[in-house]
């Protein structure tokens, strides 16, 4: 199981990387490689050239920016997992990261690579979808921005511009108020591709009334999806409220059938996990001091 031959380039700058990608439409970015390299080994992907961005300082930073936290495309998942900025400002992403892969794959896998790959069961992609993160590309010298909803269009199919370079993903910072976030998934082995994954973030006001709630489901269909649970605003996130909101939100959810899990199972599991995520998010928000 050896990859087909390719050229390798380690550019010294983002500009050089972009030039290389623009010059050769068969070139591909090598970020963490934890998904790409198996595809190369099985010859399911055969790029002419790999452009290794892992050592680009400019892409390896986690920065607070005006409207959120910008995570460079080459930031490794293990670094993100240890990041205080992410832990405090993007609690939903912080909740999702421990579910990503195993320690050795998190050591090399990147946040940007996970997004760019567009796997419907990717935890980071789901967190980005729920939070409506901004996915930033450089292509043709221009910065292009995608919302997750636009970007993820099918299983490992994305709107990534040809010859473009994903540079960073900007996750919105937590809103003000008492915020709680939670992430859950189920698979037959803990670190496998999930059969269903869910994330939720809720905001409570001083007396415990929900002012905003976000929910999303991954792994069940072609892409991660954000679901509308705005009806929860104004409730106190009681059991009935959550059950009703989840039921309504999942009504039109498309689920796939495969060897490992049926569509009916995925739907049922997604509903259960969604409620669990909302409950846990609520409980965490309650713990925050008003």
């Amino acid at each position: 199981m050896k990859a087909a031959p390719f050229d390798y380039l380690r550019p010294g700058s983002v500009g050089e990387a972009c030039e290389a990608l623009a010059a050769d439409m068969e070139a591909r970015v090598l970020a963490g490689g934890q998904t790409l390299v198996p595809m190369l080994a099985m010859r399911l992907s055969r790029p002419s050239r790999l452009v290794d961005i892992t050592r680009l300082e400019e892409l390896s930073r986690i920065d607070r920016v005006e409207d959120g936290v910008a995570i460079g495309a080459a930031v490794r998942q293990c670094i993100a997992l240890r990041s205080d900025i992410i832990a405090s400002d993007v609690p939903l992403l912080a909740a999702a990261l421990p579910h990503v892969g195993h320690p050795p794959t998190r050591a090399r896998g990147t946040v940007g690579g996970s997004i760019a790959h567009g796997d419907p069961s990717a935890e980071i992609a789901l967190a980005a979808t729920i939070l409506d993160a901004r996915i930033m590309f450089l292509a043709d010298g221009e910065e292009e921005e995608f919302s997750p909803e636009e970007f993820f269009i099918g299983p490992t199919v994305t709107m990534a511009p040809l010859g473009g370079l994903l540079t960073r993903v900007v996750f919105p910072s937590r809103p003000s108020g008492r915020v709680g976030a939670a992430f859950h998934e189920i698979a037959s082995r803990r670190s496998d591709y999930a059969f269903a994954s869910t994330g939720a973030q809720v905001v409570l006001d001083g007396d415990g009334t929900c002012t905003d709630a976000l929910l999303g489901v991954g792994s069940v269909g072609d892409t991660p999806v954000a679901l509308d649970v705005s009806a929860l605003a104004g409730t106190r996130l009681g059991e009935e409220d959550i059950r009703g909101a989840v039921e309504a939100a999942l009504e039109d959810l498309d689920c796939v059938d495969d060897l490992h899990a049926t569509a009916t199972y995925r739907r049922r599991a997604a509903a259960q996990l969604a409620a669990q995520s909302l409950r846990n998010a609520r409980d965490r928000a309650v713990e925050e001091t008003a």
């Binding site: 199981m1 380690r10 090598l30 390299v37 290794d52 195993h102 794959t105 090399r108």
Partner: peptide, 28 residues
């Protein structure tokens, strides 16, 4: 050779990683 079994685990710059999922040239 596709990153699942972990038999090829080595330590690169302090982290345990799968050596089948890195190319040697990356490790320069």
């Amino acid at each position: 050779e596709h990153g699942v079994c972990g038999a090829c685990t080595v330590i690169v710059d302090g982290d345990a990683v799968r050596s089948c999922l890195m190319f040697a040239v990356q490790c320069d």
